[in-house]
């Protein structure tokens, strides 16, 4: 693949993740509102929010250190970097030669780690509470992520995302083996925990006792808040892209021609819409679990991921 094509794909990937992640969030909100008999916010509400945040002044606490100012930018850049590793509509990824699925997962964790630090940084009680909860969840979710990632890698015989997609896409029998299905189940639970959706965290809550992600970003305002919110939306977008494309690699373009790119884009949009529908549905029928029950949920996903690895060796 020549350099120009890779560069163009990289630009398109970045534009997609920047432009489409607010739309995805809007889609989930509207679907959820419809399921609950409400009308829901306008389609472009996330964009209006961003525009407003960017015009406002950013107020920073006097006691905050450089970490507080640095975190929004770091998070934003982390998400943009991950976007170059994650397949959206094509398996030809710009940074493919640089790293694989493990790098992606640790970029996510790096941004989570810094967000937790900045939650502690201002010394506000809620920020600290949010950080401690977020780190509890991240620490419990990480073993599951790694096990789930390893089981996909075992099935596909590689940790390189392009290779995984090409391999799984060429042999659909691999998609229906127990290891792959169990890894999928574990990854779904981890996705919910990591992106702060119900039943682990409620993205719309502003009730102090239940906040996790919202508590950490409580001190942010103005352009910092815009970047943090946008990063959170991109994280959701990237996790859902990974989930849908790694486990159902149908339609992901594997060659460099325009037709397969267009088809890839359409199928990608359909997949994300289905995933958004699933999230909206789940968030309508499920209530948030108590924070002390979250370890049970994540232990369950860990057990499932472990079963995935075991079943690879047993069967």
């Amino acid at each position: 693949m020549d350099y120009v094509a890779k560069f163009l794909i990289a630009v398109v990937q970045l534009l997609i993740v920047l432009g489409a992640s607010p739309v995805l969030v809007s889609l989930i909100r509207r679907l959820k509102a419809r399921l609950q008999g409400r009308l829901g916010p306008p389609w472009f509400q996330p964009y209006y929010d961003l525009a407003k945040y960017f015009q406002k002044e950013s107020v920073v606490s006097e006691t905050a250190s450089w970490i507080f100012n640095f975190t929004p930018y770091l998070q934003f850049v982390c998400m943009l970097l991950i976007a170059l590793f994650v397949p959206f509509y094509t398996a030809m990824l710009p940074l493919d030669a640089t790293g694989g699925i493990i790098v992606i997962m640790y970029f996510f964790l790096l941004s989570t780690f810094f967000l937790a630090l900045s939650g502690l940084d201002t010394g506000s009680a809620f920020g600290g509470m949010g950080s401690s909860r977020e780190m509890t969840i991240a620490a419990l979710a990480e073993p599951t992520i790694i096990l789930a990632v390893f089981s996909i890698s075992l099935v596909a015989n590689s940790t390189n995302i392009s290779t995984i997609i090409l391999r799984l896409g060429s042999d659909y029998g691999l998609l229906f083996n127990p290891t792959h299905l169990l890894a999928f189940a574990a990854f779904v639970i981890v996705t919910i925990a990591e992106t702060g959706r119900l039943p682990v965290d409620n993205p719309t809550t502003h009730l102090e006792l239940t906040m996790i992600h919202e508590a950490m970003i409580l001190e942010y305002s103005g352009r910092h808040l815009a970047l943090v919110e946008w990063s959170a939306w991109m994280k959701l977008f990237l996790f859902l892209s990974l989930l849908t494309n790694l486990f159902f690699p149908w339609g992901v373009a594997t060659s460099l021609d325009l037709l397969s790119f267009v088809a890839g884009l359409v199928i990608f949009a359909v997949k994300l819409t289905l995933a958004a529908g699933a999230i909206a549905f789940m968030e309508t029928i499920l209530a948030k679990v108590r924070i002390f029950r979250v370890p049970e949920l994540l232990a369950g996903s860990f057990a499932i991921a472990l079963l995935a690895i075991i079943s690879f060796y047993v069967l």
């Binding site: 370890p295 049970e296 860990f302 472990l306």
Partner: peptide
């Protein structure tokens, strides 16, 4: 035995069985 612990024990039992 708590649910979280018993799930881990359960996964461990599968390894033992293997």
């Amino acid at each position: 035995i708590g649910v979280a612990t018993s799930l881990l024990v359960g996964a461990g039992l599968v390894v033992v069985a293997y």
